[in-house]
Design a protein around this nucleic acid. Sequence first.
DNA 1: ATTAGGG
DNA 2: CCCTAAT
Length: 706
Amino acid sequence: MVLQKRLDYGFNGYQVPATPRATRSARVIYFIVTKRVPFRKRVEDSQVGAFDLLATVAGKLLLDKECSRASTNTSSAEDQSGVEKTTVKEERQDGDQSLKLETCNHESTSREFYVSELVSQTNDPNYSSRESPSLQNDAHLGFASVITSSDCSERFDAQKLMNGKIKNEMGSLPCKVETGPFLCGTSGGCLKPEAENKRLKDEELHGTDKVSTGEVADTCPLEDPVVLDGKPPPLVSSDSSGKLRSCGDHNPLRSFPLRRDDVNVVSRDDDEKSSGCTHPSRIKDSFRSTPCIGDRRIRKILASKYWKVASKLKDVTFSNSDENSKSGYYGRSTYKCLRSERNYPFKKRKFLHYSSVSNSDGGTSNEGISDSPEKSINGNTASVYPKMHGVTGESSSLADQRKSFHSRDSHVKLRIKSFRVPELFIEIPESATVGSLKRTVMEAVTAILGGGLRVGVLLQGKKVREDNKTLLQTGISHDDQMDALGFSLEPNPSQTSPLLCPGSSPLKCPCDTPLPLARHPANPGLVNQVTCDPSPEPHMLNLGNFVESDHDSAPTDMSLGKNLTDSKALVAVPAMSVEALAAVPAHRKSKRSEVVQRRIRRPFSVAEVEALVQAVEKLGTGRWRDVKLRAFDNAKHRTYVDLKDKWKTLVHTARISPQQRRGEPVPQELLDRVLTAHAYWSQHQAKQQLKPQQPETCLLLYNTPK
DNA sequence: ATTAGGG
DNA sequence: CCCTAAT
């Protein structure tokens, strides 16, 4: 065959060198995509460790899978010493992006995510949260974990557990809850918007009350269900949707100062929510275990069927109790399990839906990053905001309170307009449709976002690696440095939530298997491939790599691979993390090692149909392996099952009116042959089996319609 | 690993 | 195309 010509496109001005490809198959297009995820966050608290900051940002990203936008910015930040409070605010902005990501949902357009998190132990009353409008859930939200899916019965258990814990925590923590002086306002540094200020004020006024443990306890349990359930929809792809969960540990035991460990950003869970991923910190984390998962989630996301499902909200992270076991089960489930899940979306959904949001902490201790609710089904904004938002409205939300506790430092406000997403390489056949291209890119993007990425903090162009340093120590809190502050998204080696694992956190995700990604064995040909550049970081992973083989075996990609570090290419699963996005089907295998993706669709060409028809005429139906060997031995991407399916569709096509046929028209002559051969072989099933070898004869026979 | 069928 | 069940 002729070498295909390849089109190389560079997004964002990057051109990807074409890799030599041996394949003859279709032309491949490479894209390098740099995506940016837009969002702004405000982080206040110079005291917050860099790690926390990262966690916060990461959490946000996860939440936002839906839309991404380009460009990063940081906006002003101020630090005020003394207050420890962190506020993160996110907003979406449409930005510029080289690739524009759009949400698929029709439902709601705007969704806002909030992540908030953080951790602080401050007493400040002021923590501000977001302005987001929806506050409805806030109160509830504040707390923590939310168990979302209504469906699951399991959830109940979880709730129970949670409640219990929460209560306990509350009980123990009352003191902590106090509202502190309003640091923000006072500390002059705060840049909070007016709205926030108001909030703060409100908080001051009300905060205390809210804080009371009793309240917390009450609210929490209820909330979750309410919020989450409210939007129940069906759809959510499991993972996609949410994925983020915050991991807040709720240990009652914990001491206040949070550690980095405490903060977890977890995001994806997949269906299985089970394995927790992260960090639970050292202590027992009762609450939530987060799943580790990138894979699962991706998978879920991918599964197209599921996509439609409504929102999922949050995974519930349950405590260890029953849930865990369950979750564990799923999590660990093997590939097969996953698959099965796919098939049975319902099941999955149940699990998935529960995305957990763990936000909670009992208000006390720590907080993980909470994410906002994933998507609500409807996409209502409100649903989205549920938890954290409360902040605004009620200052009282637990989270707020928590934050407030310790705040004493000055705050650093950051505005991140967008994140730069690592480069992605996408390879797609020329014959692919624009839609498929979009999907492919989406998959790549989502794979990255959902697959676990880490946030890198750049200060004056230098990577700030010391997660434990405070912003103050790092210099991030200095106004003059704000301009030099940048964030980047990097592939996270372990799928587990990147942030989670940072550093030394002791936590481990059960899920995590140490295994890195599995390499895709070579499929000879690659059809689509998406790879992510390895980031410099130590653990880089490649996110998705989707490899498909074509007839040609073109090792070619490997060359690309070079770019990627050694990356093992993962199969990229198209995942849309966000429901909204969702659209891409993806399947992943369990374990991050592999991501399974639905094979790309490769319509049969007329030539292939011809070959198939000819082979079937000779061999008959029912001997697909032989047909494959005879006519498609070189087409690795055509399996005997594919041939059988194609034959099935050909027969169907031949029987319907031409007007009803779609796709590349198949010559009527071939269709006639299909019908003839089909009829012939149908009749001679038994006989033919005996003498399959004589094509000629067969042909003669069929000519005469039986 | 194949085949047959349903989805 | 995927997935299963049955071979």
